[in-house]
Design a protein around this nucleic acid. Structure first.
Length: 822
RNA sequence: GGGGGCGUAGCCCAAUUGGCAGAGGCAAGGCGCUUAAACCGCCUCCAGUGAGGGUUCGAGUCCCUCCGCCCCUACCA
């Protein structure tokens, strides 16, 4: 038997119709209840791969399902079209990144349309469009004006061979450049930052209000990394007026301080270094400053094991707890960017300090009673204080409090909360990004480009390679300008903004890309926001989602978009990734499986159904040898639906009987099940339930006894409607065949289960004796505890087993089970 | 090192959240249809839940210990 329908023909037919009719376009004055459905806008890497298919299928099911629930669904799409790959590809191919990027966008768009995913394309946003650039720049300037943007020196990866700055991803684990193989160095450049740390506390606290996967929230919490402790002074032994300020979360271990450490970047290092130590200190500082971040971290498989390198500065400080003088070291394991850039070292209770102490022959003192089983070097657990003067005998918690008070009185101690989160470095020494709209004037300093001169657009004729600096810096015409304030000759900023800036507000632009002279009308945005369901890859769990949250909070606070909720994404979902032979399927890994061949053969509906059915949406999925067969199985299921819908080989009888009632019940239970599953990300079990329903209807309708006509009509209509969000083409076609002249299935109202029909008339209750199943009884679902027990005891099989014994205890859990203990 | 997750038929996965281990699918085998094969239809086979212990009338589910795999993060004091 051949396939009952022409897949390619009907898929094309409906895709054209959805586009032509604007079926999924929604206007801002729509009176229905609003729903904002959003998938993360993708970097346009070319035609879709299975990862795209998966996310956009989930997204599309949501859009179509919410629409059938009667909502005005905002379903926009756009492209994160700035970025490094386009720039590199353009350099390689000798073309312009825009040409390259727009060709990739066209490919991806075409894949999406062939997948049957529907969007309001009128609202399309692309990062590299001049209007988008304009508003990305306006937001930057608003941040600058509000004091949320500032300039500071920061290290970058510098490749001497390429004469350019590299992103961390371009540096290989051994610290060499992926293209030239040269050893990458660290260089300090003046760069722009956003003060995201101002929002650390709120970003952390508001996580509790979000309906996001726990693992994503956990990742953000770890990234923000709040820690409470004490900051205090370690006075110099030789000059008590001077002190090194340190931060610790373990003030209780103060008596165990046997040395102190400052970071190589510490401002006091110069002063601390004595002449006889200068040579070694300088050597260490130089080495540390040259090494790229990648090298510093790449070899750190299991951080604590990393070799600790340092040098004695020649100075000593006084431990405020016991008055002892301890040496000050400089070491690269202390970071200049965290806390105060200096620490008190407690080798008895900190593993890193212990490793350093061991390497440099420094004493180790334990201030916590270690358990008998402990045989390691540093004990980081809690316990009774020892060797700790006035803290002796206290537990860790009490000792922390007492030590904090002591430091406040004796060492300028202050309770302090530190965050791991750093300010966001947004400068990129790249061409293919949003230019930072700043001019440097020798008279006026840093001058923002006035609003009426936005957007600042990069010229097209820029050399992108081997320049020694940002590509834009080499373009004289762009670079040389006049100061907007005083009119004197001035220099334009040549760096571009991190592409995460673009993706931090694109979802606001979607809500109103039309109003002239505005990024979006805040009133319109406030009507749609927050996003009701945001879907995207787990790889964006931290940065993108955190930056976007920061942007929205900041934009509200500075008055750029008043009235918006402070959290942009109410519900977030991260679908699992697809693996091929063990590694993530991605363009960079070159292990893609293109969906196009499936569109041409089994069709988009079958492929969609496969992705929905393959497993729990949040779980990773392996693309295996068997996958092909499962996809075909999904196609077979659709064929069976099609034949059933046409009443192929179906028999009929007159009048409604028990068999018809049973099917009606199955239909309504399935409505319940599928609705629940779509709300709770159980797409795989929803599909299974629909397969089960098809089996049930099919068996009944094709039996000799046959089906009652109206019952079958309802059953098949419901089946088609429940399937519609998942397999939109075939269901649209079937609905049209079954209901010519009526509105499309996608405009139908989502079926509602009749509670009376969902209830089961009879339930099988298991009767156990001592945990062993001895009988099964058909009982009403609302049977009482007492009745359940009575019926169980009265059962012939049970009394036979009991043989007159008196039950010691009867556990009655109606209507599922009764367990008789003798 | 820290955080999160997973482990159930040959394979992908269910299990009403503590109540009969099996819903769905793939594969395999058989039968029917067919000149034959594919397609199609019907049927069958297959695990006691990674290992061990605990709580409970009852554990795949809760709690400990261990094993294996995956993801994130990492010298953050």
């Amino acid at each position: 038997m051949a396939r009952p329908f022409d897949v390619k023909k009907i898929e094309k037919k409906w895709q054209d119709r959805w586009l032509e009719d604007g079926t999924y376009e929604v206007d801002n004055d729509d009176l229905r209840e609003r729903y904002y459905a959003l998938c993360m806008y993708p970097y346009p890497s070319g035609s879709a791969h299975q990862g795209h298919v998966r996310i956009y299928t989930f997204g599309d099911v949501n859009v179509r399902y919410r629409t059938m629930l009667g909502k005005a669904v905002l379903s926009p799409f756009g492209f994160d079209s700035f970025g490094l790959p386009a720039e590199n590809a353009a350099i390689k191919a000798g073309t312009h990144p825009r040409i390259f990027t727009e060709a990739r966008i066209a490919e991806l768009k075409s894949s999406l349309i062939r997948l049957g995913a529907v969007y309001d394309w009128r609202r399309e946003v692309r990062s590299h469009d001049p209007e988008t650039i304009r508003w990305s720049q306006a937001i930057f300037l608003a941040f600058l004006k509000a004091g949320l943007a500032y300039r500071a020196e920061a290290p970058v990866n510098w490749c001497p061979g390429c004469g350019t700055v590299l992103a961390n991803e371009q540096v290989l684990p051994d610290g060499t450049c992926e293209r030239s193989g040269d050893l990458v160095e660290r260089r300090n450049l003046e760069q722009w930052f956003f003060k995201i740390t101002d929002y650390a506390e709120e970003l952390l606290n508001d996580l509790d209000t979000l309906e996001w996967p726990e693992r994503v929230k956990a990742m953000q919490r770890n990234w923000i990394g709040r820690s409470e402790g004490v900051e205090f002074d370690l006075a110099l032994t030789d000059n008590p007026a001077r002190a090194i300020r340190v931060f610790t979360t373990r003030p209780d271990t103060g008596f165990g301080v046997t040395y102190a450490v400052v970071a190589p970047e510490h401002p006091l290092l110069e002063e601390l270094t004595t002449d006889d130590q200068r040579a070694t200190v300088t050597e260490l500082v130089e080495r540390a400053s040259k090494e790229s971040e990648v090298v510093r971290t790449a070899s750190s498989e299991g951080g604590a094991a990393l070799e600790k390198r340092g040098a004695f500065t020649g100075s000593h400080v006084v431990n405020p707890f016991n008055g002892e003088s301890v040496p000050v070291y400089v070491a690269d394991y202390v970071l200049g960017t965290y806390g105060t850039g200096a620490i008190m070292a407690v080798p008895g209770e900190d593993e890193r300090d212990h490793a350093f102490a061991l390497a440099y022959g420094l004493p180790v003192v334990h201030t916590t009673q270690v358990p008998d089983s402990f045989d390691g070097g540093a004990f980081t657990g809690d316990g009774e204080k020892i060797n700790s003067g006035f803290l002796n005998g206290l537990d860790t918690g009490q000792a922390k409090l007492r030590a904090t008070e002591y430091l406040a009185e004796n060492a300028h101690g202050d309770v302090k909360v530190n965050y791991r989160l750093r300010d966001w470095l947004i400068s990129r020494q790249r061409f293919w990004g949003t230019p930072i709209p700043i001019v440097y004037c020798s008279n006026c300093g840093i001058v923002p480009v006035p609003d009426d001169q936005l957007p600042v657009l990069a010229p097209d004729d820029v050399t992108m390679d081997k320049t020694g600096q940002s590509p834009l810096a080499t373009h004289e015409e762009f670079r040389n300008t006049t100061c907007p304030v005083c009119g004197a000759p001035a220099i334009r900023e040549a760096d571009t903004m991190d592409t995460f800036c673009d993706s931090s507000w694109y979802f606001l632009r979607y809500t109103d890309p039309w109003t002239p002279n505005m990024a979006f009308d805040p009133v319109e945005a406030a009507q749609w926001m927050p996003v009701d369901q945001y879907i995207g890859g787990i790889e964006h769990a931290i940065l993108h989602l955190l930056y976007a949250r920061f942007y929205v909070k900041a934009m509200v606070d500075i008055g750029f978009s008043p009235g918006l909720p402070r959290e942009p994404f109410k519900r977030q979902f991260s679908q699992g990734m697809i693996r091929l032979s063990g590694s993530k399927m991605s363009k960079s890994k070159g292990n893609l499986v293109a969906p196009e061949e499936y569109f041409d053969t089994v069709g988009a509906d079958s492929l969609r159904l496969f992705h929905l059915f393959a497993g729990p949406p949040a779980d990773d999925m392996d693309w295996t040898d068997q996958t092909e067969e499962v996809i075909e199985g999904c196609g077979r299921f659709l064929d069976r639906v099609y034949r059933l819908s046409q009443y192929h080989e179906v028999n009929f009888h007159e009048g409604v009987d028990d068999s018809d009632q049973e099917v009606r019940r199955a239909v309504h239970r399935t409505i319940d099940k599928v609705t629940y599953d779509l709300e709770h990300w159980g797409h795989n079990t929803a599909v299974a339930a629909l397969m089960e329903l098809l089996n049930a209807i099919s068996k009944w309708a094709r039996s000799e006894h046959g089906a009652e006509r109206a019952t079958l009509d309802e059953a098949v209509d419901v089946l088609v409607m429940l399937l519609a969000p998942m397999v939109p083409h075939v269901t649209a076609e079937l609905w049209e065949e079954r209901h010519p002249g009526e509105k499309s299935v996608h405009q139908q109202t989502w079926p509602v289960a009749d509670p009376e029909l969902v209830k089961r008339a009879k339930v099988t209750m298991v009767v156990q004796v001592n945990g062993k199943v001895r009988a099964r009884l058909e009982v009403p679902p609302d049977i009482s505890m007492a009745d359940a027990a009575t019926e169980a005891l009265e059962d012939a099989a049970i009394s036979a087993v009991l043989a007159g014994a008196t039950p010691e205890r009867i556990v009655s859990r109606p209507p599922r089970l009764v367990n008789i203990i003798v």
